[in-house]
Simulated scan of single mutants.
Amino acid sequence: MTALTPRTLGPQPTADALPYAALTREIEDLLQDPTVAVPPRLVQPLHGGGSLFVMPAADARVAMTKLITFIANNAQRGLPTIQGDIVLFDVTTGQRMAMIDGPTVTARRTAAVSLLAAQKLAPRKDGPLLIVGAGVQGLSHLKAFHQGLGVQEVWIASRSASSADALVGHAERLGLKARRVDDPNAALAECPLVITTTPAQQVVMTARPRDDAFVSAVGAFTPRMVEWSADVCQHLAHTGTLVVDTRDADHEAGDLLQAGVNVELLPTLRDVVCQTEAWQTAAQRRLEHGGPVFFKSCGWGGWDLAAARCVAAQLSR
């Protein structure tokens, strides 16, 4: 058997291999694939407050390991918050197939997960879309929701006016109607689609979403991190529908855990996709009581595996 020549894909080739429509379909397929195995990720605290994430996963065809660092204050250094790579292997031969850009995968698969959740759960899909946080995740969610949900109007809020203006400019170049807003809490009353992608070092969101809102809370992905106030989370637990991305959120969903919400009782995105009994019960309650949908995204190696599957399929053509 001829040895594989591993490919190294930089940021743009990695992005090109992960169009949002294909990646979202792959995520949905992965949630229904019984061969997928994803052990708990290892999070190694680093001196200075950063973290090293080690995230392996495999299915019947592809194995991968993601190695990334998260340094919250790297923007002050002019460096990316997330850095690292993902290594792909062929399961049958064990040969290394490729190394792909970790931050690009993180940005695109996180946005694709939010997009899939919105496609399945959003009461209204017409917008305006409010994006709180104008960094890498803000940009990736802007592109994903424009391409995958048909959003035509976006409102941008950020601690940095220049960052918000830059993302507004990007949206306008895509042909969207866009504006900067200085108070994201006031903007909640006008926006049925909401994405929060802040650094999650402190509470930013203190107002309640609209009754017909879909919220994807992305920024807080460890127990110590938080974007949404405890009061709002508790209100949503009683009046809305809460869904988490995976069972890893049971010990990682900072917003909900700090609010005292019993995360273990919440349905996951897999429950939604597979229409399990857990989701049927939540869906019936939602039908009877209405209220906003709050999707808590914490991240999972399976989402990276879905991206690896997309790349592997492209490399095999």
Results as ranks from 00 to 15, higher is better:
residue 93 T to W: 07
residue 94 G to N: 10
residue 96 R to N: 01
residue 97 M to N: 00
residue 97 M to R: 14
residue 98 A to V: 12
residue 98 A to N: 05
residue 100 I to G: 03
residue 100 I to Q: 07
residue 101 D to F: 01
residue 103 P to V: 07
residue 103 P to H: 07
residue 103 P to E: 12
residue 104 T to P: 00
residue 106 T to D: 04
residue 107 A to V: 10
residue 107 A to H: 09
residue 108 R to E: 00
residue 111 A to I: 01
residue 111 A to E: 02
residue 111 A to T: 03
residue 113 V to I: 15
residue 113 V to F: 02
residue 113 V to M: 12
residue 115 L to T: 13
residue 116 L to V: 12
residue 117 A to D: 08
residue 118 A to Q: 06
residue 118 A to F: 03
residue 118 A to S: 13
residue 118 A to M: 10
residue 120 K to T: 02
residue 120 K to F: 09
residue 121 L to C: 05
residue 124 R to D: 14
residue 124 R to N: 13
residue 125 K to D: 01
residue 125 K to T: 15
residue 126 D to Q: 14
residue 126 D to W: 00
residue 128 P to D: 10
residue 129 L to T: 12
residue 132 V to Q: 03
residue 133 G to D: 04
residue 134 A to I: 01
residue 134 A to F: 01
residue 135 G to Y: 05
residue 136 V to T: 15
residue 137 Q to C: 07
residue 139 L to T: 14
residue 139 L to A: 15
residue 140 S to L: 02
residue 141 H to S: 06
residue 141 H to T: 09
residue 142 L to A: 04
residue 143 K to I: 15
residue 144 A to W: 08
residue 144 A to F: 11
residue 146 H to P: 00
residue 147 Q to S: 14
residue 147 Q to C: 02
residue 148 G to K: 06
residue 150 G to Q: 10
residue 154 V to D: 04
residue 154 V to E: 02
residue 155 W to M: 10
residue 158 S to D: 15
residue 159 R to S: 14
residue 161 A to E: 15
residue 162 S to T: 15
residue 167 L to D: 06
residue 167 L to I: 10
residue 168 V to I: 10
residue 171 A to C: 08
residue 174 L to N: 05
residue 175 G to C: 11
residue 177 K to S: 15
residue 177 K to W: 00
residue 180 R to H: 14
residue 182 D to R: 05
residue 182 D to I: 08
residue 183 D to M: 09
residue 184 P to C: 08
residue 185 N to W: 07
residue 186 A to K: 14
residue 186 A to D: 14
residue 188 L to N: 08
residue 189 A to S: 15
residue 198 T to P: 03
